[in-house]
């Protein structure tokens, strides 16, 4: 049971943290249309997170757990999202993480993650957890659009001007190593796969590689090496960035517990 809900929390935390990150562009997008596109993307992701948190709360049946409790009253060591999703929208050597947001990083991350999630949601439609299967069917449509949006910009920026090409390549080089975490094993995933609830991401790897290689070739970008440090966010061991994300996201709910609209 714990492994089952941990797996659901992993999916939910992925969606919530990336949704929160992408929402940082709200009011700051490079153009109005992209501002709205990213806000749409965030609302899709937060909607997915809500459904998954509600499902976890229903499974726990302890009369205490609610979706708000899961989103706003857990701390860094409780979150199970991939480290990739909590990183700021800036490349590694940016002087400040908030002041040096780079849209290329946003696009690269959305591309790498949504390319995976299209495959994950496709598989999870056959999950033995019927509620998860229904959430997967709904999320798949949203995620297909996220992939389309990110892929489109990746092609335009990669195969654009010398400057946009260089920035897109730098963003890819920065983020690609974090995708190693997609394929490492964890107890919650192994148990969820054995129970027929989850999907083994390694069975999706060849299909993911094909999407990545095909798109990068069209975008005239090189596939960066992915060796070195392997991140461990899904094992609850995070980068220094998640604490700042949570501080901003949770402060209101913690200052006014149980406030309602």
């Amino acid at each position: 049971m714990a492994a089952h809900t941990d797996y659901l929390l992993h999916l939910a935390d992925n969606a919530l943290i990336l949704g929160q990150r992408n929402a940082e562009w709200c009011g700051h997008g490079p153009i109005l249309e992209e501002d709205l596109a990213l806000a749409n993307n965030s609302l899709d992701l937060i909607g997915q997170a809500r459904l998954l948190y509600q499902h976890v709360a229903a499974l726990r049946k302890d009369g205490r757990t609610t979706e708000d409790h899961l989103a706003y009253f857990r701390d860094v060591p409780d979150f199970r999202n991939y480290t990739l999703l909590e990183l700021p929208h800036s490349t590694a050597l940016a002087p400040t993480s908030a002041g040096n947001r780079d849209y290329a990083v946003t696009i690269a991350r959305n591309f790498l993650f949504s390319a995976l999630m299209v495959l994950v949601w496709e598989s999870l439609r056959a999950s033995k957890d019927a509620q998860l299967a229904a959430i997967a069917a709904k999320s798949l449509k949203e995620t297909q659009y996220h992939l389309r949006h990110a892929r489109d910009w990746l092609l335009r920026l990669g195969d654009g001007t010398a400057d946009s090409h260089a920035r897109m390549q730098a963003a890819m080089d920065h983020l690609m190593p974090y995708t190693q975490e997609f394929w490492t094993s964890s107890e919650m995933e192994t148990s969820a796969v054995e129970a027929g609830v989850g999907v083994d991401t390694n069975t999706l790897r060849a299909a993911w590689d094909e999407v990545i290689d095909d798109t990068l070739a069209q975008a005239t970008l090189k596939r960066s090496t992915t060796d070195g440090y392997v991140s461990t966010g899904k094992l609850c061991v995070h980068s220094e960035h998640l604490g700042f994300v949570l501080a901003e996201m949770q402060s209101l709910a913690r200052a006014h517990p149980e406030a309602v609209w």
């Binding site: 153009i31 109005l32 249309e33 709205l36 596109a37 749409n40 389309r148 949006h149 489109d152 335009r156």
Partner: peptide, 20 residues
């Protein structure tokens, strides 16, 4: 109306701006 680099991009932006 909206500004976009080409027809395909205009279509995607129209989806995000006008059909939310």
């Amino acid at each position: 109306s909206l500004h976009a680099a080409d027809a395909q991009q205009a279509l995607q932006m129209a989806r995000d701006v006008y059909t939310r």
